[in-house]
Simulated scan of single mutants.
Amino acid sequence: MTTSTEVRPSLSSRLKHETAAQHERMHTLMEAADPFASRDGYARFVAAQYLFQRDVEHLFEDAAVRAAVPDLDGRGRAAASQADLADLERELPQADLASAGVAMPEALGWLYVSEGSTLGAAFLFKAAQEKLGLSAEFGARNLAAYPQGRAAAWRNFVAALDSDALDARTHDAVIAGANAAYDRFARLLARTFETA
């Protein structure tokens, strides 16, 4: 008699596959916005980024989120986005906090979207440098790598996601949180660039 053990996909694997369409939608929205065509367009993108990062960093206050992601204090880019807007001589945008009612485990989905965008921002950072003359010290702080590097920061985050400390029964809620975060950033981009 043989017994088979069902192998469940990891949370990070499920997130990657089950939010793939959302990820592609972000690429399409960014292409349509073309934020690196001018400093004005880029400033609009940073305004959206600031509001989204403010939403994400609100979740850092949750003790359960802090327990799940031990290096949380080194993450988040709201302050960098705020400084970039000042460099670009733009006022801080105002909007309601979209994550006010979000808690664990959905909060991890929001972090997944934020951390994934940080990992993928290398191309955006290069465009900001080459097309707009910006840098990690002026205007493009929000796109710069973490001090430990993009890949190391991502690996640490994925290790937290795939930890045994997260009950597999909560994975659907994390994925729902990621979809909500993608939807939020899509709305911010649409709102920001419709005013152009």
Rank of each mutant, 00 (worst) to 15 (best):
L119C: 11
F157L: 02
Y112V: 01
G139E: 01
A127W: 12
K126M: 08
L161P: 11
S114W: 00
A140R: 01
G116V: 05
E130I: 06
S114H: 08
P147Y: 04
T118Q: 12
N156M: 03
S163N: 15
A145Q: 07
A153T: 15
G149F: 02
L111M: 14
L132S: 12
R155V: 14
A128W: 11
W110I: 04
S163D: 15
S117M: 09
V158H: 00
A159Q: 14
Q148W: 01
W154M: 04
S117L: 08
L161K: 06
S117V: 04
Y112H: 15
L124T: 11
R150P: 02
A122V: 09
E130F: 06
P147V: 10
R150M: 10
G149V: 13
A122D: 07
E130H: 08
R155T: 13
N156A: 14
A153L: 05
S114M: 13
S163R: 12
F157P: 03
R141C: 05
A122H: 06
Y146N: 15
R141F: 00
S114I: 02
A152N: 12
F157T: 13
E115L: 07
Y112F: 15
E115P: 01
A160F: 08
G120N: 02
G116C: 02
Q129D: 03
L161D: 11
L124R: 00
G133M: 06
A140K: 00
A153Q: 13
Q129R: 15
F138G: 01
P147G: 08
Q129I: 10
Q129S: 15
G120W: 07
W110Q: 03
F125N: 05
L143T: 09
L132R: 07
S117F: 08
S135T: 12
Y112P: 00
W110P: 00
G139N: 03
G120I: 06
E115V: 07
G139H: 05
A136T: 01
F123E: 10
A128M: 12
L119A: 09
A152H: 05
A121H: 00
A136M: 04
K131F: 05
E137H: 08
L132P: 12
